[in-house]
């Protein structure tokens, strides 16, 4: 555990809770991609199956349980409790174009050809692109609520901080995981455009709106 890893995890946790609170307090999931949230629920489920097979630490187990629980709670709020506010027409990204290639890649490129390991790899690859339906939705409507941008910023910072964590671990522990690093780089790059808009607009008190 190093400072980048810890702040990365906390940033991830903050993102998840910001989104849950936003939906709960406003009684609305307007502007939120339900498809991205389903993908994240799949990501956590596929990755944390090792909860059943191995114990690493109290921190590890509790964070995993919290992430999974919050992911399903978010999906429930969007598709059941506040379904009437869900903007399905604008959430039109074709997720099969992500899930199918990512599934194929996980079968082809993995550390060990075993069910748990392939599911772990699948979750790493899927996570790297799971935000695309959300970004697509924002580009389609041309705007995002400020609270939604805070969510996206925390979510983007999480994998960025993990990149620093991996540099740290490589130098001080000789540890590296090529699959996680490459996927983490892809994931971070996908946020770059958003980071730019967040710093130049949202942090200066303006709403995030894209030119028509």
């Amino acid at each position: 555990m190093n400072i980048f890893r810890l702040t990365g995890d906390l940033s991830h946790l903050a993102a998840i809770i910001i989104l849950l609170l936003k939906i709960w307090k406003s009684r609305s999931c307007a502007g939120i991609s339900g498809k991205s949230q389903i993908l994240f629920a799949i990501v956590f489920t596929a990755r944390y199956l090792d909860l059943l097979t191995s114990f690493i630490s109290v921190y590890n187990t509790s964070m995993k349980v919290i992430y999974i629980g919050c992911a399903y709670a978010t999906v429930y709020l969007i598709y059941a409790k506040f379904r009437a506010t869900y903007d399905g027409n604008h959430d039109s990204f074709r997720v099969e174009f992500l899930v199918v290639p990512v599934g194929g890649l996980a079968v082809l490129i993995n550390h060990t050809f075993s069910p748990l390991e392939i599911l772990w790899t699948f979750s790493i690859y899927l996570e790297s692109v799971a935000i695309l339906p959300q970004l697509f939705m924002i580009s389609k409507t041309g705007e995002a609520e400020t609270i939604t941008t805070h969510y996206l910023f925390c979510l983007g910072m999480y994998r960025t901080l993990y990149l620093f964590n991996w540099v740290w671990r490589f130098y001080f522990e000789g540890f590296f995981d090529m699959i996680a690093i490459v996927a983490g780089l892809v994931q971070t790059v996908l946020y770059c455009d958003f980071f730019y808009l967040y710093v130049t607009k949202v942090l200066k008190g303006k709403k995030l709106s894209l030119p028509a």
Partner: peptide, 10 residues
């Protein structure tokens, strides 16, 4: 070329 024995990360 990989060291994937540790799955302690989230």
């Amino acid at each position: 070329l990989t060291n994937n024995t540790s799955k302690d990360e989230l």
